[in-house]
Simulated assay, not measured.
Amino acid sequence: MILVEPTMMTREILKNALEKDTHLIRAVEVARKRKDIWPSREAAREYFSTRLPWRRWDKRVLDLYTEHALYDLPTSTYPDKKGVTFTITRAQEAGSMSHHEDGFDALDILQSICPVLPVHTVFGEHDDMVPVETQEAIVSVAEGRRMKSIVRVAGAGHLVVQEDPCGTALAIWGILQGEYAQVTIRVPSHL
């Protein structure tokens, strides 16, 4: 199993995150208030290219995002508007950062998976969104989550897949090479 920037945290870390001004609180607020209508995909692409987090993304990812993560208006959310908007609403995005039970459950399940299955974790090098203490809790040996490997992609942050897809792919490839380099696959001959 390979986890890439997993979105999990302990209940204690979440409690602390909700008590002070953190990346999580700010991300939810930004999602609730952010601009979400543009006159065209080209205008949206231009907007994204100058603002975080999108301006840090690989150009190819940003192009695909602009093509596939936007709906043409009107939509049920904006029945009287023209242009383009996100495929998910602001409320849906904020909600995705506000429900944490799946992350708690995943951490619990990892405790039973790690002893029987090699689990690898890929993080971005920078803790721009997910604090180091959260990453350490995810891979906590004391909590029974002993990873087979932990890889950090240089120069990337929490959105490592979008920021450095090649670096992410190389990290995964390196894990697979290490895991399966000694495996000989026999393919039956059809002579």
Rank of each mutant, 00 (worst) to 15 (best):
E46Q: 13
R145L: 02
L3K: 07
V61S: 07
G124V: 01
D63E: 14
L159S: 09
K81L: 06
I150P: 01
D128S: 07
R45S: 10
D128G: 10
L14M: 06
E29T: 09
V141I: 09
A31I: 10
T22H: 02
G155R: 07
M129I: 14
M97P: 00
R60M: 12
Q177L: 09
G83T: 05
L3T: 12
H100V: 03
R34A: 06
L159Y: 14
W57L: 08
T22I: 05
S149N: 08
R60S: 12
D80N: 13
G103A: 05
F48D: 01
I109G: 02
R34C: 09
R32F: 06
R45I: 05
V61I: 11
T134E: 15
T85L: 00
L117V: 15
T85D: 00
R45Q: 12
G155A: 06
A27T: 07
Q135S: 07
G178K: 11
P165A: 04
V122G: 00
R32H: 07
F48Y: 07
P131E: 10
W173M: 02
I13H: 08
R56T: 04
E101F: 13
R55N: 10
A91E: 09
S149G: 09
V160R: 00
G167Y: 02
E125V: 05
T75R: 01
Y180D: 04
V161G: 05
K81M: 11
L52T: 12
I2N: 06
L52N: 14
Y71R: 13
P79L: 06
V119L: 07
K82D: 09
Q135H: 07
E12A: 11
R56M: 08
K15P: 05
Q92R: 15
R56D: 08
V183T: 12
V84S: 04
L176F: 08
K59N: 07
R146M: 12
Y180H: 14
V160L: 00
S98N: 05
V84I: 05
L3Q: 08
G155E: 08
V84Q: 01
Q111V: 11
I13W: 08
T50I: 09
Y180S: 05
S76E: 10
T77D: 15
V160T: 04
L107E: 00
D102G: 12
H126V: 11
E163V: 11
